[in-house]
Write a protein that binds this DNA or RNA. Sequence first.
RNA 1: GGGUGGUUAGCUCAGCUGGUAGAGCGUCGCCCUUACAAGGCGAAUGUCGGGGGUUCGACUCCCUCACCACCCACCA
Length: 923
Amino acid sequence: METTYNPQSIEQKWYQSWEERGYFAPGTNPDAANYCIMIPPPNVTGTLHMGHAFQDTIMDALIRYHRMQGDNTLWQAGTDHAGIATQMVVERQLAADGKSRHDLGRDAFIEKVWDWKQQSGGSITQQLRRMGGSLDWEHERFTMDEGLSDAVHKVFIHLYDEGLIYRGKRLVNWDPILHTALSDLEVISEEESGHLWHFSYPLTDGSGQLVVATTRPETMLGDSAVAVHPDDERYQDMIGKTITLPLVGREIPIIADDYVDMEFGTGCVKITPAHDFNDYEMGKRHDLPMYNILTVDACINDQAPEKYRGKDRYEARDMIVHDLKELGLLADVKDHKLMVPRGDRSGSVVEPYLTDQWYVKIAPLAQPAIDAVKNGDIKFVPENWDKTYFEWMNNIQDWCISRQIWWGHRIPAWYDNDGNIYVADNEAEARKKYQLDDSLQLTQDEDVLDTWFSSALWPFSTLGWPEKTGRLQQFYPTSVLVTGFDIIFFWVARMIMFGLKFMDQVPFKEIYIHGLVRDADGQKMSKSKGNVLDPIDIIDGIDLESLVAKRTSGLMQPQMAAKIEKATRKQFPDGIPALGTDALRFTFASQATSGRDVVLSPDRIAGNRNFCNKIWNATRYVLMNTEDQDTGIDNADCSYSLADRWIRSRLQRVIADVHRHFNAYRFDLAAQELYAFVWDDYCDWYLELCKPVLMKDHFTAEQKRGARQTLVQVLESILRLNHPLMPFITEELWQRVAPLAGIENETIMLQAYPEADETLIDAAAEEELEWLKQFVMGVRRIRSESDIAPGKALPVILQNASDDDRQRYQNNEAFIFSLAKLQSVDFISNSDNAPESSTALVGEMKVLIPLAGLIDKDAEMARLNKEISKLQSNLEKTSSKLDNPGFVDKAPEAVVNKERERAAEMASALSNLKQQLEKIAAL
RNA sequence: GGGUGGUUAGCUCAGCUGGUAGAGCGUCGCCCUUACAAGGCGAAUGUCGGGGGUUCGACUCCCUCACCACCCACCA
């Protein structure tokens, strides 16, 4: 074996072997539990980022944990067609050649997208493999493959027939760059600086004017009323009159509506029902005409006065402000902060726009979905996310599902020339279903469905629905959904609604919501900030120049490049070393505290790479001492030392804890416990304790066998325990360790996860080992603080040892000599005169190291003083507690007794140390 | 405007149903001791955001304030 752990030489080979041998396929044991996680399907043409890597680590850890427990375990693989996102990428490629999708036409364009999918579709699944993800690739699905498209049609038709999908002319969020409607969720509003313009609108009868305020002057071309509050005394006599809309010349009414806020501005609002959501509602209430004044590009259309036609909305704005000013109607302009809605993909300012769209009537679907969380059929982890869920679900709006793009599931609806709608699987079906004459001409709806429509079916469509497949039967409802909070509304809520509607059962029983991955400074990772880290670069390493090049290429704002380059060179002067998948995964796990964001720093990953190295070298040591030697696996004739019994006992506790943590989704606690057990207990103490047993001749063959056997068996358990978090290194090492533990099997992946054996818990051994540790650490502290060379063997005198102490000493003499590096040990009674020494206490027993020639008097006094003052202040705290009658009377007896014991111990230790101090001082 | 989460050692974070404050990384000593210098041994470090309250006892429960982050929302 190499002396240093090198992840690159082991990871890929094991993954290939696992996949080739079909280990990722779910089991079919009828007596076993079923466990299933659906991967949140990444964009088929996307690449893996840190968020994926984190999420995949959690899912794979759960999957491997359950697989090892013998469950029939399925991690469903697949990708999403990601309608708008993918279409945009391909359109951008076309644009580079000076073409648009319209130049190609619909069919040719879609073919082009499929080509692109073919070409780049494998990269994210390849990267998932690099993360060690044990997905069932055999049954990988794609949201636009045949089966899933069938499911989409079936759901659409069913909902339409039931009246839960309808088509209607409504105000929608319109993206003027992409030329499509967006759902509310796809619109991101951010505060921007703008202006508030005040315009005077003259009354038609010439009796005066009203001043209205607006942030969007160009919409005045579409005004169909001015509104005031019904109780507003200033305008009482104007309600019912009309004004003549400047520039347009339209006569529009002054209406009263209590939506208007009297306090804001002048208390008068211009109403543009076709271009504002509030105005739209008011327009409906008052039956106002709706003047659409914009084209699909957000230019002024032919409804408006000729002068403005064809102008971009912002150009028109300037013109209108200018023209009104000329007319003396611009009353005021103020700076104003306002929320500007932008499309999440295109970034363009979204327009409320009147169009025909398809909607899902959501309220009837939402109620059961709310109930499912309320009654506990579905549980959020951490729990508090249910609040967010309820808040949204209780205010949910109908879902606009049609998109005016080409890449996606085309809506299965046909129209005749009169605009009648026929919804069916295909045209022939439609004719049959609606008994249409062949002569009737039908044309299919041009729109496609929102990507999230097909994602909403993911938990059952991937398992074969609408067919009644065995997989569907076996794995629905799935066990847990692992996802980020950002798609609770987009995806989680909709899966619940559709799952309940079409499967009559929740799609998953638990929802584990994880945090966001941030960079070492706690910043969100984003390409534009130039702080993204590619998981693959952490795994394989990357040199500085490549990293700089990667971070600065393809920026939306190229002027950021210099700044990004500088920051990158500063943070990673030597690039990033190859840290391996296992270290990255372990780091993610250890950071996965409930609901918090993950701050990822390469230092931390390096620390866990060191942990891998630790396990690697511990294994080397174990192999060195056990290969070709008698480990007593087939031989009951072993004698177990204190150390053996102790480490086995500790192991049982750790196993039980790790199970608990996994079941509570506390990967951080599981990781921490495993780390501490391996490093502190197994390596720092147990391996060191074994050394004298294995090396000294006076230990019997039985004792040596006991040690070898324990070394191997505990290590083998450690590897299995860690496997869900660190699949590669554990497999590599297990292959060599398992045979020594008498286990012959192909892979650790399919081994049983360790189960705690309570009969091996040995409280007496734990207590005795604690005594031993105190002894050893006492000597070490004196050695270190008195500047005694680590190699120098020390004489020790034990005073005031109880029978217990003596017995324990006898039992463990070899351990003590070895770990504390002793030369000799002598017992003296309490009454004996001890030589001047440095002292450590183990309970009541004094461990004395004679001063002669070794220890500096002043240093020893300083050391004693320090300990004395520490003890003193602790003792004071405890005694004042005990002096408080309230405490003694009211606190539970056990607590009081414990406190009394502590006080006694401290008092005794204190007097011992004080005595010692006096002695030394007197020298 | 409403809501959620956070504020604990220099940094990043644990701390379960209230009973002597922990880990990793970093820092400081001493060591290349025959698994590991990606290591060993030892050490230092906290008015647990501020202020109140409940309690014998509060990092832990309640109230309040401050700051940070995020989500939702139609104030022109």
